[in-house]
């Protein structure tokens, strides 16, 4: 299959890559660009481990084609920290022990950040429903909810 050139912006940096027409954005990120922060847990949009944002919208990158990134703005887990300054969500995930194996963590952080940008003061229930598309098998979600709420409070300046 002939590859297609794609010009896009990832985490604020202009970026070009080649991919085949049937290649997912997740595979392009991981295999073409070396950005392995997004994980493939299912390949069918059920687990959320591959979450990124595409033009500000939270998506499963396993359900997006690489060519759909043309002209788009993509953010991934690799762009969440500002240099060595962790995002409050990242910091609170560590401080609240909200990760064990950590393989779902990049997707959950990307999803949680997208939530807080829309809704800076979500209820626990809103956090739970927003994150319902992100499977975590280790934690039982308890500490994840607490970490998201602690980060939200900090970001609101509370």
């Amino acid at each position: 299959m002939k590859s297609i050139p794609v010009s896009t912006t990832i985490n604020g940096d202009a970026c070009e890559f080649l991919c085949t027409p049937d290649e997912t954005l997740l595979d392009a990120l991981r295999n073409r660009l070396g950005m392995t922060g997004a994980k493939e847990g299912c390949g069918t949009g059920d687990c959320g481990a591959c979450s990124v944002t595409l033009n500000g919208r939270l998506v499963c990158s396993c359900l997006v084609l690489g060519v759909e990134a043309e002209g788009a703005e993509i953010t991934t887990i690799e762009g969440m920290a500002d240099g060595d300054e962790l995002h409050p969500l990242q910091r609170h995930f560590i401080d609240h022990a909200a990760l064990q194996c950590g393989v779902c963590t990049p997707g959950i952080l990307v999803a949680a950040k997208a939530l807080l940008e829309k809704n800076p003061e979500p209820s626990d229930e809103e956090v739970r429903y927003w994150l319902a598309g992100n499977l975590c098998r280790c934690t039982g979600y308890d500490k994840i909810i607490r970490a998201v709420q602690a980060a939200a409070a900090e970001m609101r300046g509370a």
Partner: peptide, 15 residues
């Protein structure tokens, strides 16, 4: 291993 895991740097099997 916290910072590696929240920044996407941790290297899992498929990485």
């Amino acid at each position: 291993d916290g910072v590696d895991k929240v920044t996407g740097r941790a290297m899992y099997g498929a990485d």
